[in-house]
Design a protein around this nucleic acid. Structure first.
Lengths: 224, 224
DNA sequence: ATTTCATATTTTGTCGACAAAATATGAAAT
DNA sequence: ATTTCATATTTTGTCGACAAAATATGAAAT
């Protein structure tokens, strides 16, 4: 079950992956202090590689470091998430517009098949929100890949992707937006298939706006 | 003249700043191998802090690391820059639209004053392209700040900002786009002052497209 | 002369120890 | 009881040394 398929990798990468996973799943709570010595021992390594991993995670915005005072897990407050979704809307909107031009017919078909699987999953068991949630991110990232813009892939892939997963873990238990989301995904694929970039961008932007609205409401409830 | 105003900082930060500066100015050539031991000695520090600095620069995309084979300065080829400018257009366009809503009158006035200074600089001496170029980035970043979106500031500030500076150093000697650029900047400030976000976004997008066109042509000439 | 392979050298990856800074503790003064 | 300050403890910052991997070197075979 655990991820042990690290080909032949450096300890820093192992630490970075394990830390990222722990942060995303909430095992390490938001805002929590990360003690270097403690983590290094838990992972069975020296502090050197661990410190390098922390620098990496800092670059991914999963961790915030203060000189001489250590690292803390990032806190996803309302403002941070709002900013994140605004950036996402701009970037994924653009990705979608370009992807409508650049993706092959084959890739668009694959996207459709991916959605079929999602639909099956939803009908089968509405409960397994986790897998569904990861699938959603899959969908989005396939489109980003379709834009052929490497910088976009880096930005959305390695960084925002993790923050989104983190956000999902926090809010997913009661999330019941799978139905409308799937339908919106279908619409987007439709626009891509017709090679209508403008429409695809607009649909993607609305989709992300909708997701933010839903999350925003959830945050309100939590705070109440 | 040299930057020695590091309050009380960590060696890693010193190394990161010096490396970033060397990379941006071209002192360290694109694609060049970065030897840890050599750099550590040059900076008068151990390899630990230097390695951490390299991780930071990797996160800023100034450096590319390959496990067990070391770090190299990033190569700004045509595709990379094209991708960068596409992302910039989306992000700065968005920033501009939001800034039209969010900036204070005071901030917009400051922007105008900044442009007056640029104009004076240009009239005074068309030669000092460097200072002018930094000023241009200043202008763009003030608007990004006006969006109040911290993620945007991080993205454009710490990362893309450096890549752009790097690009400028490479192409600035023969860049003669200061005139039209200033005029476009004035138009943008005008739109901001009128609180017309849509117009401001469109003007910013065109401005960035124009910059890319100009750089693209320069790359063509270099390759010929 | 060119290629192939074993060996030597260089370079990266990792550790443990010490220094310096931040934090926690507790005694003294009010 | 509360605050202030000095001291003890913990935690981060840094170094030098060794191990492991990658690379360079040069001898042997064709």
């Amino acid at each position: 079950m655990l991820v042990n398929t690290h080909q032949q990798s450096t300890l820093t990468d192992v630490a970075a992956h394990r830390l990222a996973q722990s942060i995303v799943t909430g095992e390490l709570a938001q805002g929590q202090k990360l003690n270097e010595a403690e983590l290094a021992e838990r992972f069975g390594m020296g502090r050197g590689p661990l410190r390098e991993a922390l620098r990496q995670l800092e670059g991914m915005r999963l961790v915030k470091r203060i000189p001489n005072a250590g690292a803390r897990v990032v806190v996803l407050d309302r403002k941070t998430l709002s900013d994140l979704y605004a950036v996402r809307e701009a970037l994924e909107g653009m990705a979608c517009r370009i992807a409508a031009d650049q993706m092959t017919d084959e890739e668009i078909s694959q996207l459709s098949i991916l959605l079929d699987r999602h639909e099956a999953q939803i009908n089968e068991q509405g409960g397994k929100v986790y897998a569904q949630s990861e699938g959603d991110l899959d969908f989005h990232f396939q489109i980003v890949r379709g834009s052929r813009n490497q910088m976009l892939m880096d930005l959305l892939g390695s960084e925002q992707y993790q923050l989104l997963r983190m956000c999902r873990y926090r809010t997913s238990r009661n999330a019941q937006r799978t139905g409308p989301a799937l339908q919106q995904h279908r619409q987007i694929v439709g626009a891509l298939a017709q090679r209508d970039g403008e429409l695809a961008e607009m649909l993607m932007r609305r989709h992300i706006q909708g997701a933010w609205l839903s999350i925003s409401e959830m945050i309100d409830k939590e705070e109440a």
